[in-house]
């Protein structure tokens, strides 16, 4: 475990906690894309099936269980518990345009043609684009609450830190995974525009509001 991965994991954990706290304290899921959260639940479920086949460490297992569990709690909050506050009119991204191509790609480009490997690959590809419904929602409404911005920043930083982790592992461990690296680059690039807005606006005390 190197520092980049540890900070990346903590950033991921922080993002999830920020999101849950935002929903719970404000009793509202306004501004949050239920579609992105469903995609994240699918990502974690398909990636962590190895919980049943291999054990790495207590840290690894507990983080996986936490990520899967909280992703379902989040989806439950949006579509059940706080449903009246869910802004479905603005959450109109067509997720089939992500799931179908990503599924096809996972089928064609993978490390090994087996069920678990294809599902793992699918989850890596899907994670890279899962935030698009959320970013689409922010651009459609033209604004994001500060707390939502903090969530997005922590979530985006996590994969950027994993890129540094992979550079480190390449040099010091000779480890390189093309699928993870390409998907990680795509994922991080999708956040670049948001990172720019976050640094130039949110950190100066303004909330993100885009010109109509």
């Amino acid at each position: 475990m190197n520092i980049f991965r540890l900070v990346g994991d903590m950033s991921h954990l922080l993002a999830i906690i920020i999101l849950l706290m935002k929903m719970w304290k404000s009793r509202s899921v306004a501004g949050i894309s239920g579609k992105s959260q469903i995609l994240f639940a699918i990502v974690f479920t398909t990636r962590y099936l190895d919980l049943f086949t291999s054990f790495v460490s207590i840290y690894n297992t507990s983080m996986k269980v936490f990520f899967i569990g909280t992703s379902y709690v989040t989806v439950y909050f949006i579509y059940q518990h706080f449903k009246p506050t869910y802004d479905s009119n603005h959450d109109t991204f067509r997720v089939e345009f992500l799931i179908v191509p990503v599924g096809g790609l996972a089928f064609l480009v993978n490390h090994e043609f087996s069920l678990l490997e294809i599902l793992w690959t699918f989850s890596i590809y899907l994670e890279s684009v899962a935030i698009l419904p959320q970013l689409f929602m922010v651009s459609k409404t033209g604004e994001a609450e500060s707390i939502t911005s903090h969530y997005l920043f922590a979530l985006g930083s996590y994969r950027a830190l994993y890129l540094l982790n992979w550079i480190y592992r390449y040099y010091f461990e000779g480890f390189f995974d093309l699928i993870a690296v390409v998907a990680g680059c795509v994922q991080t690039i999708l956040y670049c525009d948001f990172f720019y807005l976050y640094i130039t606006k949110v950190l100066k005390g303004k909330k993100i509001s885009l010109p109509a």
Binding site: R5, S54, V56, N60, F67, E112, Y162, D177
Partner: peptide, 10 residues
């Protein structure tokens, strides 16, 4: 098959 190293990542 993918390397073992990635199995310890999240």
């Amino acid at each position: 098959e993918k390397q073992d190293a990635i199995k310890d990542e999240l």
